[in-house]
Amino acid sequence: MRPEYRYALMNTQTPHPPVLSMRNISITLGGRKILNSVSLDVERGELKVLIGPSGGGKSTFLQCMNLLVTPDAGSVSIEGASVNPHDKKALCRLRQDVGMIFQDFNLFDHLTAVKNVAIALRRVKGMSREAAEERAMHELGRVGLTDKADLYPAHLSGGQKQRVAIARALAMDPKVILLDEPTSALDPELVGEVLAVIRDLAKSGMTMIMATHQMDFATALASEILFMEQGNIIERGTPGSLLAPDSATRTRDFCTRLADM
């Protein structure tokens, strides 16, 4: 039995539908097959880690999860409800429930840290300016940036920018957060502060899907590691099973080469 099917069977026995469920997602971009009928269920509180070589489809797969990229085929469901990618209202609702952290932060350049966090609360959730900024300050406190609230992105370090981006996502009370190589654009000495915030989130039970090359982090915290290559999930399992010293998995091979660099 293919792993996806075994997974689907397991899910019928759980009382709650998965927080996020991707079914047979396929997409071709520029004549190249980027995702080849990929499926994934994410249960509440899980941290799924996507690894694999660049161009393997990790980023596109993540962007299909909040439908920033519309797949050619397949379905996305949040808490059991399938989302129609052409229904704009449903799309906006889905994206409020699915936070996203980008590799290059994408803070709004014209807004201070606190306004970056507050703007979606005001414009999307319709909160008052006061309420939105109060909530924003609370979220900045969670990522340890209360004192940077009034700085513009140009005056923040990469690590601080990424922490503001995390606060911005958290402020929307998402059911799941997608992280697309959140530390890849950072100077090595800034990686730790961002990973610490993500670690706290994982420990507080936030459901997350993260593409990363930080294998120590993945090994310590992932509920499951998914190895993606050429548009397929070719291996999946707990860190223990995939990375055991005697396992001859593609994942282990890849990680050994990462470590050698």
Binding site: R95, Q96, F108, R168
Partner: peptide
């Protein structure tokens, strides 16, 4: 940069809101 639009869409902004506020 496209990233600015992507970030707004990812937060649930509509296209018009993204253009207007970002």
């Amino acid at each position: 940069k496209q990233g600015q639009l992507k970030a707004a869409y990812a937060l649930g902004f509509t296209r018009v809101q993204t253009i207007l506020w970002i």
